[in-house]
Structure formats: C-alpha cells, structure tokens
Amino acid sequence: MKKYGLLILLLIIVVRLNAQSWEVPDDKKAKVSPVQFSSETAKKGEVIFLRNCQSCHGNPTKGNFANLIPSPGDPATDKFQKQTDGALFYKITTGRSPMPQFKDVLTEEERWQVISYFRSFNKNYVQPPVASASKVAAKQAALTVVWEAASRKLKVTASDTLKRSLKGVGVLLFVKRYFGNMQIGEEMTTNDSGIVRFDFPKDIPGDKTGNLDLIIRINSEKGDDVQKTVRLPLGVIVDKPPLTLPRAMWNVVWKSPVWLLLAYFLVVIGVWSFLIYIIYQLVKMKRRAGNV
C-alpha cells in the first residue's frame, strides 16, 4: 500500500508542476470591473461564493480547500490576490478541468461581486478606476433577423434607435432548449453594415412542425444584454411517439404481449372450467341424493 501511496504522491507532484500555469490573455488581464467594489458588493459576492465555490475552495483564510489536482487554493492567499481583477474574472468565466466554467451560471455582475468578496480579504488592495460604459449602449440597439434559405444562413442586422448600423458588436445565437439555451456556432462581430451571418446547422431538432425558438443576443459587459427571440421553422421535424407505445412485458397490463394475454387466459379458463365442472357434478350428486 505504501508503494501505491508513493506513486500517487509522485503523480501529484508531477501534475502540480504541469498544472501551475493557467495562462490568461493579456487583454483579459487588463480588464477592469465596471462595478465599484464596496462592502455591499462583497456581501453579495459571499453569498454567491458559498453557493457555487465553497465546496472546492473552502472558506477564505481557513485554507480548507479540497485536495484536488490542480489545487483549488484559498482565495485569501497571495495565489489569488497577486492576480489582476481581469485575470480572476477570466478564470471564473471560462474555467478549466476540474474547475467548472461559470459564464452561464453567474452574470458578469455576479462574477465581479465574487471578486469583490475576494478583495475584502486584502487590506492592501486598491481598486483600479471603474471601467466606463461599454462600447455599445446595448439598451438602444435593435435587431432584425432574416433567414437566407439558399445559403442556410441567418442574417442578423444590428442597429441603434436611429437606424444607424452598429458595427463591431458581438452577437450570439442560441436555440431554446428545455433547460437552457444552446449556443449555435461562436460569437460573431458585426461588419461595417452592422450585419453578421450565422451558418445554421441542418440537424437541430425542432418541434412537431420543425419550429425552433431562436435567441439572438448582443453581448454587453454590464449585463443589460439586448435579446430577441424569433420562431422559425429551421429545425428537423421531431414527432417521436411516447416510450410506452409498444406492447411489452414492462408495459401496463392491457399493453402486454398478445401471446401472453391469450396464453394466460386460455390456460386459466381451460383448467378452471374442469374444476367448475367437477364442483358442479358434486353439487348435482348432493341434490339427487337429497331428492331420493
């Protein structure tokens, strides 16, 4: 067993060495929060942290994080505090094994609140100047969607309230599914005419008529995304019968295999008709004897 333990230890060390580096692109490192950190944002961040992060990272300053490879670490330590806000934001957003990504779980604002909570353990921390309003005033944007059947492309035009096209805006496409929206392709940036064209796959299952609910969203950093939902018949027609349709051993009794129904009732009726006949004979004998 000792040998085995040693092997694991060795493995842990090797993997740790490899896993130390988690590269963050420079532009992401430089990103700063649009939210002013305060005790209030830290409080909100704590609630989120306890719900989503504590099981691996433990309680900050306590060092009670889970024994994983690579190590999750304690957010109150230098390992975290020496990183820029942007780097932390990037890591929370994208994740890497075994850390889950949180881009669909936490809004950008919530992610910044978690960072605010982290910084509350660092007395020397000074927040860099808050980022000014994002490049697009998303609230004022409008989206038009056109299906180009010949090329199977979905054309999305982004414009502002004055119908001027918005260029250089990130647009995402989703299909609505039961438990969440499923992204189609990657985020695309509008051209000079404010247009993006998404390749739309042929094999996305739709409803009984092939309809799909598409969600087109302009990504804004402040969380006030512009979103438009359109219903288009772009999906594959799916009309699967209920799983309980066929006759089977596991189905309800009236959907049991026909041969079983026949065999059971024929045998039971066959045997019991003889028994009833015999009982009838006995009753008859009694009755005749009584008459005599």
Partner: peptide, 11 residues
C-alpha cells in the same frame, strides 16, 4: 399485471 411471475404464482 399478468406479466408479473408473481401473478402467475398466485394463479
């Protein structure tokens, strides 16, 4: 449920 061997056994 006549698919169940228990029902056959009872019978």
């Amino acid at each position: 449920r006549i698919q169940s061997p228990i029902l056959w056994d009872v019978t």
